[in-house]
């Protein structure tokens, strides 16, 4: 059914101590149902663990869910670890509770997209497909 084509691979990560996983589970199901391969890290990961897993799994996208307010710490660490691994072609997107000013700051740092509370599942799928297409083949 997919001879030749590479499926989009996404790692869904919960970083830090926040255990809210309602959103990541809905997103994981949605992406799977859209035909993607989804790797879930489980809860309470460090940014470095997530990047190591993303490199080994050769994902297109790292999706980070964070509701604890620690996003201004977590995202820069992920971006730095990707750079250190020569892996900044792996796209970083995020979701959770993030204030508008922080969203703008994170995007200027290199976070590709942020999808907050109540984003319809179909929009998340479309966003992932769009950023992967924009990046081009690798």
């Amino acid at each position: 059914m997919d001879a030749g084509g590479e499926r989009i691979r996404v790692i869904i990560a919960k970083v830090g101590l926040d255990g809210h996983d309602r959103g990541v589970k809905i997103v994981a199901r949605t992406l799977r149902d859209a035909g993607m391969d989804v790797i879930y890290t489980g809860l309470h990961r460090t940014p470095e663990e997530v990047v190591e897993a993303a490199v080994q799994e050769d994902v297109d996208v790292i999706g980070v869910s964070i509701l604890s307010g620690a996003h201004m710490t977590v995202f820069p660490r992920i971006l730095a670890a990707l750079k250190a691994r020569d892996a900044d072609d792996i796209l970083v997107v995020g979701g959770g509770v993030i204030a508008d000013d922080d969203c703008a700051a994170l995007k200027s740092m290199g976070v590709r997209e942020l999808m907050l509370q109540d984003t319809p599942p179909a929009e998340i799928v479309a966003m992932i497909e769009r950023v992967v297409t924009e990046r081009g083949p690798r």
Partner: peptide, 16 residues
């Protein structure tokens, strides 16, 4: 869909 959720890395945390 042909998609999959791959959860087995969970246990591998200690090897990170």
């Amino acid at each position: 869909s042909g998609g999959a959720i791959l959860g087995d890395r969970i246990r591998m945390g200690e090897l990170g």
